[in-house]
Simulated assay, not measured.
Amino acid sequence: MPLVPNSFPAVLLASGSPRRRELLASLGVEFQVQAADLDEYSDETHPAAVARDLALQKCRAVAALHPGAVVIASDTVVALGEQQLAKPADSAENADFLRRLSGKAHHVYSGVAVSSSAGEDAEVSETRVVFRPLTPGEVAWYAHSGEGLDKAGGYGIQGLGAALIERIEGEYTGVVGFPLSVVIRLLRRHGVAVWGEE
């Protein structure tokens, strides 16, 4: 969607995620959505580096279309040991993810990138998530719900998936995919008022 010259919003959110829209709106930030159109691939191997790299790729893709605007992008990577769990392809893979996560700890890395005329910044939040042991019936029920199909790791902590989790160590909104402590810090660094503060 083209922006009217000299009237772009304070922020362009380079994501179509409704969860990220809700979280950014909760900060009192004026923004429009301009989802990044790119194939998500990174040459990085560590999940934190992958999350940072993909957030930067999304940010740069949108910033190239709207020079001078403040652009924010985010990407989330779920890692169980050395294995990265992306979005499951179907309910069967979703169930497989849940069986692997059951009773174990995993890490969620959410990268945030912000660019403006002042340059660009990127940071990554890390949250340790522990699943409670799940019964076969719980795995089947949640996988059948479809909630996890569009989420890294195959579950949503902000929805039905909250019942899968025993505890977390770190930032809750990082697991949702938009760590607000990082978002606030980077937006303020680029001159965006949060909650009315200049």
Rank of each mutant, 00 (worst) to 15 (best):
R128M: 15
R185T: 13
H107M: 08
N6F: 07
V182C: 11
L101Q: 14
L164T: 07
G154I: 15
V114Q: 15
E171D: 09
S15K: 01
I165E: 01
L24Y: 02
P5C: 08
L23W: 04
A25H: 04
E198R: 15
A79P: 03
D75R: 12
K58H: 07
D121C: 08
H66I: 14
E40P: 03
G191V: 13
V192P: 13
G103Q: 06
A63P: 05
V139K: 04
G156W: 05
Q57H: 10
G177N: 06
G196E: 12
E126H: 11
D53E: 10
V108F: 04
A143E: 10
E166H: 11
G159Q: 06
D43C: 06
G161H: 02
N94T: 09
A118E: 13
W195P: 00
Q34N: 02
L134D: 09
G81R: 11
I157K: 08
D96G: 09
S7F: 03
A73K: 12
V71C: 03
G137M: 12
P136L: 08
A14P: 01
L134Q: 12
K87H: 01
R100C: 07
A162V: 15
A86N: 10
R21A: 05
V11F: 04
T135S: 15
N6H: 09
G103H: 08
H106W: 07
R99C: 04
E166G: 12
E123G: 06
A113E: 05
V71A: 02
V139C: 05
E198Y: 12
A51V: 07
E166M: 02
V77Y: 02
Y109R: 08
V129P: 04
G161C: 07
M1K: 09
R20I: 00
V108L: 04
V139G: 05
L65E: 13
S42Q: 09
A63Q: 15
S145Y: 13
V183G: 11
R100E: 06
N6E: 08
Q158A: 10
Y142G: 07
L101G: 09
I184H: 11
E198A: 15
A49Q: 07
V4W: 06
R185H: 15
Y41M: 06
D90R: 08
G154S: 14
A79F: 03
R60Y: 08
